[in-house]
Design a binder for these strands. Structure first.
Length: 444
RNA sequence: GCGGCAUUAGCUCAGUAGGUUAGAGCGCCAGAUUGUGGAUCUGGAGGUCGUGGGUUCGAGACCCACAUGCCGCCCCA
């Protein structure tokens, strides 16, 4: 039994070669799409000064943050002065505040890095996980929201997803709805938490929560919940919301934003969903989330946060972003077998077996094949029976084994065995690469 | 943070009402006429039964605590 000591820390994982291949594949697709939308790469340190992060994510976030004790003689104080980043948005806000004069007027960046949360691990949920963020800073235009939704959707599409939905809502609309329903300001957060659970616990469940937390009277609650019935297309939902909100100025601003956003996007992509709330406290405008059927949580989410950078800079810079969750994407893709087959290909195109006194010849042939662009594994021990060497290559599904025996030595000849067909031929060492390459390309 | 279930060889799991040296399948390593794999046969290595306490003449089995994992709640990517 692996003693507990060799397991990675709770909620964290080692990535074996196959895992890394999958991760790198997904990351490369996402990156490529983001680049095509004109986003530039950014990386920031794993740790931030603790005051940079504290208070940006609400009470829950403060608790789930991994804090780092002061080092050296100060360690005994038990005081933390650093923390591992909790998301990529707050570090971005810090960067923008710090380098304002060096960055373009509209800063579009993507960032694919790990973040850490001291959460309880669960399906698709870890304590160290990657976020793939895109953000646009410096513009209040709804074109930004549309572009971000479009880029994220396209990335998922490129990965092979076709059944996802982008749920779209707006903080201001929520404010309008809750005000119009007569819910007191200080009960708004409680009401939103309950509403967010609508698709999980149903309308009755939400009503019970309302009652339990004294959010709103039962009668008004029912009227409110009627708003959230999933019936109707986006236009009908928006009309319904507008009737309910009436003349609430803030709420109407939100509705106008939503109308503008969906007008820029194909109608099939986005679904207005008034029950979407999202936990992070820094959102101020549109909020969105991407969902697929067989995943309880979301595959990603984001929104507009016009005030966050102001917390660092002293003057507001509008911003909007979206974050895809790498491990959730990988989880669903693995379950659905969505990874391309050649990702799971063998570690090498050909293995050079080493035979008795021909080690140097084998190494020089290997070098030659590598120069031709082939991936060549050299069996790392000599004087091992040829059968065992071939068996080793076969188990690792390497398609070819090459070796130089007594009869070939000194003649510039190499035996090349195709492990799939079992056939083998004696070739001039110059021909080997050609034969292997032909087969490798045929398979790919 | 709360509740439930789990933890025995590298992997998946058996282990009868607590009783001598803990098992299987797969995998791994090797052998079956000195240069040929996948099939078959044979053999081998590998576990202080998650950790620490306790009950007992005796515990992998029972009790407690802790750790880790899974499923709900909470929250979230």
């Amino acid at each position: 039994m692996p003693s507990a000591k060799t397991q990675p820390a709770r909620g964290m994982r080692d990535f074996l070669p196959e895992d890394v291949r999958k991760r790198e594949y997904v990351i490369s697709v996402i990156k490529e799409v983001y680049e095509r939308y004109g986003f530039e790469p950014l990386e920031t340190p794993a740790a931030e000064n603790i005051e940079t992060l504290m208070g940006k994510y609400g009470e829950e976030g403060n608790q789930l943050m991994f804090k780092i004790l002061k080092r050296g003689v100060h360690e005994g104080t038990g005081e933390a002065d650093l923390a591992l980043r909790y998301d990529l948005t707050v570090p971005l806000a810090r960067v923008v505040a710090e380098y304002r004069d060096k960055l373009p007027k509209f800063f579009k960046r993507y960032q694919i890095q790990p973040v850490w949360r001291a959460d309880r691990p669960a399906r698709g949920r870890y304590r160290e996980f990657y976020q793939c963020d895109v953000d646009v800073l410096g513009s209040r235009s709804m074109i930004v929201e549309a572009e971000i939704i479009s880029a994220s959707s396209e990335a998922l599409g490129k990965l092979g997803f076709s059944d996802f939905v982008v749920r779209l809502n707006h903080r201001k609309v929520l404010t309008g709805i809750l005000d119009a329903a007569g819910i007191a300001q200080e009960k708004h957060v409680t009401a939103l938490i309950a509403l967010d659970k609508l698709d999980k616990i149903g309308a009755d469940g939400v009503l019970r929560e309302f009652e339990a937390r004294e959010v709103v009277a039962a009668e008004a609650g029912k009227e409110l919940l009627a708003l959230f019935e999933p019936s109707g297309d986006n236009e009908e939902i928006l009309a319904r919301l507008e009737r309910f909100i009436g003349s609430h100025v803030i709420g109407l601003e939100g509705l106008a934003d939503l109308r503008e956003i969906i007008s820029y996007l194909p109608s099939s992509v986005v679904r207005i969903d008034p029950s979407l709330a999202r936990g992070l406290t820094y959102y101020t405008g549109a909020i969105m989330e991407i969902q697929v059927e067989d995943l309880a949580g979301s595959m990603g989410g984001g929104g507009r946060y016009d005030n966050l950078i102001g917390m660092f800079l002293g003057r507001d810079i509008p911003a909007c972003g979206f974050s895809l969750g790498l491990e959730r994407i990988i989880l669903v893709m693995s379950e659905r077998n969505m990874f391309p087959v050649n990702l799971l290909r063998s570690p090498a195109d050909v293995m050079m077996a080493v035979w008795r006194d021909a080690v140097e010849d084998a190494l020089s042939v290997a070098a030659e094949l590598r120069r031709q662009g082939l991936r060549v594994d050299v069996y790392p021990e000599r004087d091992v029976k040829l059968g065992n060497q071939i068996s080793y290559a076969s188990k690792r599904s390497i398609p070819f084994v090459a070796f130089i025996g007594e009869e070939e030595r000194g003649k510039g000849l190499v035996v090349l065995k195709n492990l799939k067909t079992g056939e083998q031929e004696i070739l001039d060492r110059g021909e080997v690469a050609h034969v292997v390459l032909r087969e490798v390309r045929r398979v790919e």
